[in-house]
Simulated assay, not measured.
Amino acid sequence: MANKEQSQQWLEQHIERVERVLEQVMPQPTVVPASLHEAMRYAVLGGGKRVRAALVYAAGEAAVQGSELSSAQAKALDHAAAAVELIHAYSLVHDDLPCMDDDDLRRGRPTVHVAYDEATAMLVGDALQPLAFELVANMPVAPALVIQAVAALSKAAGSQGMVGGQAIDCASVDKQLNLEQLRQMHSLKTGAMLEVSVLLGGIVAGASSATRQQLIDYAKAVGLAFQVVDDILDVTADTATLGKTAGKDAADNKPTYVSIMGLAQSKQLLADLKDQACKALLPLGAGAHSLALLADFIVDRDH
């Protein structure tokens, strides 16, 4: 129980931190084109778990292994945390479109194309993505680290990452996938952005190649765990709790861990992944405490 309360407190502090950053970097709704900027703010500032941002901050803490982050590194972490949230928000806006998942509810509110219109929703996503890269490009750290961060985020968000996973997802409706195919799809669609969130924290903090690999091993486990939890909640939680339409994967005949493995085996996989994540953190010592708390939060979340 203490761990859960501790993880919730740490997460709330860092949610508030990235919310302040996002509020500052988002164009004001009074700036032309006002309607687009209003819709962008609606998409980004409308709540959310901010797990990706939290992973950036926690990985930065772990990478310095007990040392203090410089003010420049702290600001760079803010940029990176906001950037991954902008990419995530853009992906949700596009995923909800009628040509994709055709969903009317996101974070307990009407989706952007419902609240505004389809053209605006498309443009919101188109605008959020370059804003994310602008933030990363302007991180106040060594130019070599900025280049590494831009390259990592580009790959994670592109056809070899999130967008590629979405393409596989769209092509997999009404098809039978085996477990390995499902794992590959989700390692791209969901896992890639969770992994790069952890990696960006390590890059900003100047982590060694060995530390970066330990962070990546952790991130691969929690990235998959995040999706397994999503699949479990889709069949065990209700719409009000989720803030999005419950049971939609089954209704759309989409392959999930639960549909392939069953609920009991999916829960066992989740426990195994949490164990893998914790083992990956052991070489990082006490500095990885926040990453361990986030692994608990991801596995135990109920929405």
Rank of each mutant, 00 (worst) to 15 (best):
L273G: 04
G161D: 12
L282H: 15
A83C: 15
G165N: 04
G66M: 01
G247F: 01
V150F: 01
R106Y: 04
E23D: 14
A81V: 08
N178D: 14
P33K: 06
D217P: 08
L273E: 02
Q6R: 15
L199H: 14
V25R: 01
S91R: 06
L105H: 03
V64T: 09
R212E: 10
Y218N: 07
G262S: 06
E16Y: 13
T120H: 05
M193C: 09
T111F: 00
L145S: 13
A246Q: 05
S209L: 12
Y257N: 06
E16K: 15
G191R: 02
A54W: 02
T111H: 03
E12N: 15
L282I: 15
Q276A: 13
Q28V: 13
T30Q: 14
A167T: 14
K49Y: 03
H37Y: 06
S172M: 04
H14A: 07
K175E: 07
A240R: 10
M40W: 04
P33Q: 06
A205R: 01
D78C: 10
L177Q: 07
L177T: 09
T120P: 11
R301C: 07
A250T: 14
D234L: 00
A62L: 01
L224V: 08
V124F: 02
G191Q: 00
E38Y: 11
K254R: 11
A277H: 02
V299T: 12
L199F: 13
G262Y: 01
N253W: 11
E68A: 14
V64D: 03
S35I: 12
A251V: 12
R212Q: 13
L128G: 07
V229N: 06
L233M: 06
D231E: 05
A277Y: 00
K220R: 14
E19R: 12
L284H: 02
L177W: 04
A246E: 00
G161H: 09
R17M: 09
A58H: 02
S70P: 13
I168W: 09
L97E: 05
G243Y: 06
H88R: 07
S266N: 05
A149K: 01
V299C: 10
A246Y: 02
R52Q: 05
D272K: 09
P130V: 00
V204Q: 07
S208A: 08
V51G: 02
K244L: 01
L194H: 08
D95C: 06
H88M: 07
V228F: 00
A127N: 08
P29E: 00
A246M: 04
L281T: 12
A219D: 04
D231L: 03
R212N: 11
A207S: 10
A80P: 08
L284C: 06
E19A: 11
G46Y: 00
L45R: 08
P283R: 01
S290T: 10
K155L: 14
L215M: 09
Y90I: 07
H79M: 09
V84K: 05
Y90V: 05
G48V: 03
M193N: 09
P283S: 03
E195V: 11
V235R: 05
L131A: 11
K189R: 12
M26H: 05
